[in-house]
């Protein structure tokens, strides 16, 4: 099982790398925001696999924190890092 966990974790990491192509190339700023969603799920899956593979339950807690932070980073991204073309409509 160990080998399977590590192989899958590596596979997911490559998957994440491929997804980064879209994040880097856009074309719109909205596409860059997809990184939040991509990382939210993939990083959690990688951490859970590693927790099982290395018998290190603490990594599961790291996964839990990533799951919690995914929502927060997304809000921060969308609210702060996303250039607003129609600034006059934005109440903030």
């Amino acid at each position: 099982m160990q080998t399977l966990y590590f192989t899958l974790a590596l596979f997911l990491l490559l998957n994440l790398g491929a997804g980064m192509w879209r994040v880097l190339h856009g074309p719109t700023a909205a596409d860059r925001m997809l990184a939040a969603q991509l990382f939210g799920t993939t990083a959690v899956a990688v951490l859970l696999l590693l927790a099982q593979a290395t018998d290190n339950a603490a990594l599961r807690d790291v996964g839990l924190l990533f799951a919690l932070l995914a929502a927060v980073t997304a809000v921060a991204f969308v609210r702060r890092a996303w250039p607003n073309r129609e600034a006059k409509h934005d109440p903030d």
């Binding site: 939210g40 995914a70 929502a71």
Partner: peptide
């Protein structure tokens, strides 16, 4: 993650 995914 489900909850966050829907909101994101």
């Amino acid at each position: 993650v489900l909850l966050a995914g829907g909101s994101v």
